[in-house]
Each structure stands twice: as C-alpha cells, then as structure tokens.
Amino acid sequence: MTDEQPVIGPALDPAADLVLAVRGDNSATAPDYELPPTVPLDTASEILGIPVADGRKLAKTGGYHALVKVIPVGRKFVASTAGLIQAVGLDKVREVLRPPGEVAR
C-alpha cells in the first residue's frame, strides 16, 4: 500500500467534453479513468449517504454547502465532483459513478 495520492486535474475526453482526469501518480501520462466535473444532486446525496429528499431540502436552504459545493443550474442543482472526493474519498465516489459493467480495479 502506498501513501501516494491520486492526481486529479481537468482534461478533455475524446468528444471534447470537460472531465476530471484521475491518475495514480504524477508520472502517469494517460488517466487511469475520467470523472464528470459535476454530478446531479441526487447522485451526490447517494455518495454522501443522505436521503435524496433531505439533500434537496438542504440544497434549497443553502445547507448543502456545509457538505460539498452545489451549483444551481436552472431549477436543479449539481454538486462538485472534486468536493465529493474531498468529503468522502475517491473510492466512494468511484463506487457510485462506476459505469454499469465496469469491474473495480
């Protein structure tokens, strides 16, 4: 086991969409995987382990910011993936965001 932390930074995927590129270390040239820069509020609530209805109430009253940064987009909210990683760790975020059928490393 290593104490080295993954390197997370902005990148463009092949479709030119902004993503967070996650590399196991600074020497990696290609990302180990990519994550979206934001996730829907309901997904963020799942990652944080709080009921979706409670997450929506917290977002509307401004209380969600105590957990992680949320951004209003129209009538909905999205949460910062980087903030979620800081709050609960990369493994938990990857567990929820892993595409169906992808095997854990």
Rank of each mutant, 00 (worst) to 15 (best):
T2A: 08
E4D: 15
Q5F: 08
Q5T: 10
P6H: 02
I8V: 13
G9H: 14
G9F: 11
A11P: 02
A11F: 04
P14I: 14
P14Q: 11
A15K: 12
A16I: 09
D17H: 09
V19P: 00
L20N: 02
A21P: 08
A21N: 06
V22L: 06
V22P: 02
R23T: 03
R23I: 00
D25R: 08
N26F: 13
N26M: 09
N26K: 13
T29W: 08
D32A: 14
Y33C: 06
Y33W: 12
E34A: 12
E34K: 05
E34P: 02
T38G: 04
P40W: 01
T43K: 03
S45H: 07
S45P: 08
S45E: 09
E46H: 13
E46M: 11
I47G: 00
I50E: 00
P51H: 10
V52R: 14
V52M: 07
D54C: 13
R56L: 13
L58H: 01
K60N: 14
G63D: 06
G63Q: 04
Y64E: 04
H65Q: 15
A66I: 07
A66H: 03
V68M: 05
V70I: 09
I71A: 07
I71M: 11
V73F: 04
R75L: 14
R75S: 15
K76S: 15
V78A: 09
V78Y: 03
V78C: 03
A79F: 10
S80T: 11
T81I: 07
T81P: 01
A82C: 09
A82W: 08
G83S: 08
L84P: 03
I85Q: 01
Q86N: 14
Q86L: 11
A87Y: 08
V88T: 07
V88C: 02
G89H: 07
L90Q: 01
D91M: 12
K92N: 07
V93E: 00
V93H: 00
R94E: 12
E95N: 13
E95D: 15
V96Y: 06
P99N: 02
P99A: 09
P99C: 05
P99G: 07
P100N: 05
E102H: 11
V103M: 13
